[in-house]
Amino acid sequence: MRKDPLIPGVYCHDLIQFNNRSGVLSMLEIVFFYIASLVALIATVMAMTRANAIHALIYLIVSLLAVAVIFFLIGAPFAAALEIVIYAGAIMVLFVFVIMMLNLGEKGDKQERQWLSPSVWVGPALLSIVLLAELLFIISDVNGPVSTSSVSPKAVGLSLFGPYVLAVEISAMLLLAGLVGSFHLGRRYLERDYGDERGKE
């Protein structure tokens, strides 16, 4: 096993290095970081302790939003956008839609009216307002905390398809494994259900 790199310096070639570049965090940044972290913690604890799946999911979305604000704060606006678009946007909303769609009929309507009562949405809304206020404050200040160092989408793309191109390829294989696996595991229940229906007919 080799102990020294064959090409000197090639191992340390990491394009995204926060801690060497940005230096000391400003006081304001630290305060904002702790507020956002507190929101994330509260939302996650609430998500874990809710008995109702919809309530838990809404808190989980707030938690993801808080993490996105933290990303924004430390100079990774692209990662923040991805966090919202992919996690809070696509995946979580899919969950919420599926659960709501499963509640069809009279009973479902009643259930949905119940979900719209203030006790359900006040908590997540308050937490989101804190995050929104924080975000507005950051972007209203031109020389604000995030302007010191930020990683642009271009930098992310360059490192993904430069030194980390193999990681992208392996991720593709990982997705293939997940796809084929869920197909195999899901199919047996699908076939069983169809079989039952045919039996009824």
Partner: peptide, 13 residues
Amino acid sequence: TQPVTVLLQVDNW
């Protein structure tokens, strides 16, 4: 045998 990008190290071991 050589390092392949930063991710992999192909050596005899």
